[in-house]
Design a protein around this nucleic acid. Structure first.
Lengths: 262, 262
DNA sequence: CGCCGTCTTGACGAATCTCAAATAAAGTGG
DNA sequence: CCACTTTATTTGAGATTCGTCAAGACGGCG
């Protein structure tokens, strides 16, 4: 795996970046987090940074945090100050309404940057919860803003990320408003495949990190419907499902499903 | 009404701000658009501007445009350079998918600023179409950025607007993912009432500017469902519907409907 | 006045949800 | 590592919601 085993449970008093509950999260800033040797660098905020800024990016990450499954990274209303780059694991974001309704608004995997929802309003709008044991780099937004001035590439990366985020939300809206249940599920499976592929994994086989209930919440469906539709696609030979292991057998049929009207 | 009747059909060659189709829109920059005497000022980007910046804001608006019902202000893919503040009338924004699906993503009324979807990506992401005869102020984004440096109030207003936009999209997602048809419609009617009220109009009676089909598209429903549900709410005494005239008779019942599980 | 786009309403069917029970998988403590 | 508990998943039957198709009414406008 990696040399990240040593978990320092004590929070160093020097940099109290994270208020409240987050103090409980395990800080795993081994000796010192170091972007330039990080193997997630190519996906992250300082990707392809100019040679002259190489040294600067090692000042970017304040600390690394380790979350156990189910732990919360930030909550709605919390003051925004930090973006989090997922190094390892996966995270769901959940929207909460005043009346108690809630909905999974996204699933995020290694290489994704989360917390961007706070940039506009100074406060987080959703809750981020680890779907499995997860490690994130905490990057103070103020440092990003500084580096944006020095590095056009960092600015470009940030813009790309924010634009992707907006595009993602837009696709979700279109999906919820215009697609049937089976089409939503197909779109979901294809999107996951695409994202795993982009990270160098197989695009035809992967393991779901979330429950049927969480998938249903994201897609605006009940968990039983998700389960039934997975079974149906399996029966039809389009995919193969074994618990959370998904194999896409006929990607063309899957894509076609989204476009067919009945 | 207002002193806006004189429509100059000729586009002055001086400032060719808007490319392509937009040249066809009628420029109604009477002598010169003037924010400081505009009666929409309190809702707009330079609202509550500092006294020392009063003169600067009159350089903000490049021109005023008049759209007839059905005309398009901008389209997906078009280069972003300008925000539009609605002075009069109303506009819908429409998302388009590659496969032909489309969905109304929002309804915008006088006082709303549209075009913000282009800020992140440099290109517009949706199509803006006038629902009725409409007048907008075209505000070059570069001028806003300049003014943001001089005026903390303008910066604040911009942030507020963008945060509101994000919050609005978030609420739409939650609505589409978690509410039944009747609850969506109730939420829609309440939202319109709230927005009209904020603009000084009655919160219990208003005229819809869009068709049942457009409401359905926005809510992820078919037009027949929208019509049936309006009739049902009318029958139940919660609202009164006469064509596009809506009267909210029992706002409490309407709000309650959203929270009841069946 | 007649046309056309919009709206309403009914009947029917398909999609999706609810409730319930059985099964499978994952986590826990000895 | 096993037995036990808890959680997650599958599947069925029946109810409900919503969409589809079709016919007619309404209303603005040339």
């Amino acid at each position: 795996m990696e040399a990240l085993a040593k978990v320092t449970t004590a929070v160093p008093p020097s940099e109290t970046l994270l208020p409240g509950a987050k103090q409980l999260l395990r800080d795993v800033s081994s000796p010192r987090p170091n972007c330039s040797t990080c193997n997630m660098l190519q996906w992250c905020i300082p990707a392809n940074v100019e040679p002259e800024n190489r040294r600067a990016i090692d000042q970017l990450v304040a600390k690394r945090l380790k979350l156990r499954k189910g732990e919360t990274l930030f909550r709605p209303g919390e003051k925004f100050s930090t973006l989090f780059s997922i190094r390892l694991g996966s995270v769901k974001t959940v929207l909460l309404a005043e009346d108690g309704r809630d909905q999974v608004s996204g699933f995020h995997m290694a290489g994704d940057v989360i917390g961007t929802d706070g940039i506009g309003s100074e406060h987080h709008e959703c809750q981020a919860i680890a779907l499995e044991d997860t490690e994130v780099c905490a990057i103070p937004y103020s440092r990003i803003e500084e580096l944006e001035h020095a590095s056009p590439q960092v600015l470009r990366n940030m813009h790309r990320m924010l634009a992707e985020e907006i595009g993602r939300e837009r696709r979700v809206m279109l999906m919820l408003g215009t697609l049937r249940a089976d089409q939503r599920l197909a779109a979901f499976l294809i999107d996951l495949a695409r994202r795993y592929h982009a990270r160098g994994y197989s695009s035809s086989e992967y393991v779901l990190r979330m429950t049927r209930d969480e998938i249903g919440s994201f897609l605006g469906l009940k968990l039983e419907t998700v389960s039934r539709l997975l079974s149906r696609l399996h029966r039809e030979g389009v995919i193969q499902v074994q618990g959370r292991i998904i194999k896409i057998l006929d990607p063309v049929a899957l894509k076609h499903l989204i476009e067919t009207s009945v």
